[in-house]
Simulated scan of single mutants.
Amino acid sequence: MNTDPRPLYARAAEQIAALIRTVRPEQLAGPTPCGEFDVRTLLSHMAGGTRRIAVVGAGGDGLAVRPFVDGVPDDGWVAAYDEVRAEVEQSWADDARLDALVHVPWGEAPGRIALSGYVMEAVTHTWDLSEALGRPLGLDPELAEFALAIAHRVLPDEQRGDDVPFDSAAPAPEGADAYERLAAWLGRRSLSRA
């Protein structure tokens, strides 16, 4: 894979930021397709995962970064996410980072592979958040197609073990779009279909 994932990651991050701007305070305690996360916890995880890939891009160890952020006030999620996505842009600015080996939670990988994996994570959590918020915005289908291709490459469809943070693949609903196919591959179910 020789794709430069930075433009896709930037688009995914902009889409997340737009979605976060739609969150109303009364939605923060609402459910998400990530069974153990309410919207507030999902936002914490999205910001924390973004901080993690920023640290990885700067040459740090992804395992050393907790994938959640604490202490964000309910009206502070837009600013918190904008801050960490700016860190990602800065830490991945050097083209050499794409071919450098980096340390991510699943092992060591070239930067472009690691960042592609985080595109998949960002796009997946975009769907989670969109579902939780009642789908307030249209989502970029090209991002979902890229994330789905990565998911097919890195995750088997059979039973996934405890060390994999996704459930086993589920059948996609008839007529599913790319986001719904991605969600199904990662074992997620729509709140409206649950």
Rank of each mutant, 00 (worst) to 15 (best):
M1W: 12
P5N: 07
P7K: 09
L8I: 00
A10P: 02
R11G: 12
R11L: 10
R11W: 04
A12N: 10
Q15H: 08
Q15G: 14
I16R: 13
A17G: 14
L19G: 06
I20F: 05
R21Q: 13
R24M: 05
E26M: 06
L28M: 08
P31E: 12
C34W: 05
C34G: 02
G35F: 00
L43D: 09
A47R: 03
T50L: 07
A54C: 08
V55R: 12
V56Y: 01
G57M: 07
G59E: 03
D61W: 04
G62V: 09
P67T: 11
F68S: 13
V69I: 12
G71I: 03
P73Y: 02
D74M: 05
A79L: 08
A80E: 13
Y81L: 14
D82W: 02
R85Q: 13
R85I: 08
R85L: 09
V88H: 09
V88C: 12
E89Q: 14
E89F: 02
A93G: 04
R97S: 14
P105G: 10
G111P: 01
G111N: 06
I113M: 12
I113R: 13
A114T: 04
L115T: 07
S116D: 11
S116R: 11
S116N: 10
G117R: 13
V119F: 02
M120G: 00
E121I: 06
A122T: 15
T126D: 01
W127E: 03
W127I: 02
S130F: 01
A132V: 09
A132C: 09
A132E: 06
G134N: 05
L137E: 11
P141H: 11
L148H: 12
A149M: 07
A151W: 03
A151L: 03
H152P: 00
R153P: 00
L155S: 02
E158A: 15
E158M: 05
G161Q: 07
G161A: 08
P165K: 03
A170E: 15
P173D: 11
A178Q: 09
E180K: 03
G187P: 05
S190W: 03
L191D: 11
